[in-house]
Design a protein around this nucleic acid. Structure first.
Lengths: 154, 154
DNA sequence: TTTGTTGCAAAACGTTTGCAGCCTC
DNA sequence: GAGGCTGCAAACGTTTTGCAACAAA
């Protein structure tokens, strides 16, 4: 699947969703979707706002509004990181991955592990229909580990 | 391990931690710890504050301060649920468990799975020191599933 | 034409901070 | 007695809301 196709595909999904829910297809909404899908990695509302100021001006309120819609139709996901601002990520074309979160500096790295993935996907419940999962490993990244060690030696 | 012993044990851990870090052993800190460990389930700062008003008055600021200390010595953990307020949970005497979160009604259930636990604990990184992990499975709980089915049949 | 959506600014919310007085150590 | 800790209230940063103007259907 090519990047370009992915963008068109995603716009269509959003369009269908808006139609189904009887929401309006405003240029702002599609501009926001487009910026998200031509951007790499995680982002929060303000990063998206700043990024968009250059070529398509929208208000923060509209960004929050649209993020809710995109969440509802699963075109983005909201990360439950412990911290100040809500982090988002697009869901199409990113491949599967888990997250490493540094408890010290809050940095987030991604990793993939097939064994973990298989183990989790195999899990079934009688009275719960799993749609997706999120796995976060917390700890200290190498950068912070170095800083802590050098402080200790003082 | 009995509940009563667990409380004493936990107080000792906290006491040792405070000594080691050269922090003071104030009555407020131990009162907060005690309330947390005689309470079941998840809680947030304000719930704890309201709960404590009855028999030991502390300020919200002190609660936040103490929660940070308890996090630092791993007597509680902070849940990265998607949402407004930070959720905490005690770490001793609760057994290990993962979480099922219903995307429809937001209810949270716990489950245990040794295979998953072992797989995740076995994972090691060269440049990341893992301290803990959190796993959340999202989906639709049986109650919401029934509601959705009965709506569809109308 | 209707009514959902936008931008703006103000409000709300959880959390953090500054500071005077208190109480461990 | 010194300095960390507390309570209070004000400040902070993110997200939500109220409202008038606008534009999609």
């Amino acid at each position: 699947m090519k990047e370009d196709n992915s963008l068109e595909e995603v716009k269509e999904i959003f369009s269908d969703y808006l139609t189904k829910k009887k929401h309006r297809k405003t240029p702002e909404r599609f501009a926001i979707l487009e910026h998200i899908y031509t951007h790499r990695g995680h982002f929060d509302a303000e990063m998206l706002y700043n990024m968009m100021q250059e070529d398509y001006r929208v208000s923060l309120a509209t960004i929050y509004n649209t993020l809710d819609l995109l969440l509802d139709c699963s075109l983005i996901l909201k990360h439950p990181f412990v911290g100040q601002t809500a982090q988002f990520e697009k869901t199409f074309g990113t491949g599967f991955h888990h997250h490493l979160v540094c408890s010290k500096c809050g940095s987030v790295k991604e990793f993939s592990d097939m064994k973990i993935r298989r183990t989790l996907q195999a899990k079934k419940f009688a009275s719960f229909e799993t749609t997706h999962y999120s796995l976060y490993l917390y700890g200290i990244c190498s950068k912070c580990r170095k800083e802590m060690n050098s402080k200790k030696n003082k």
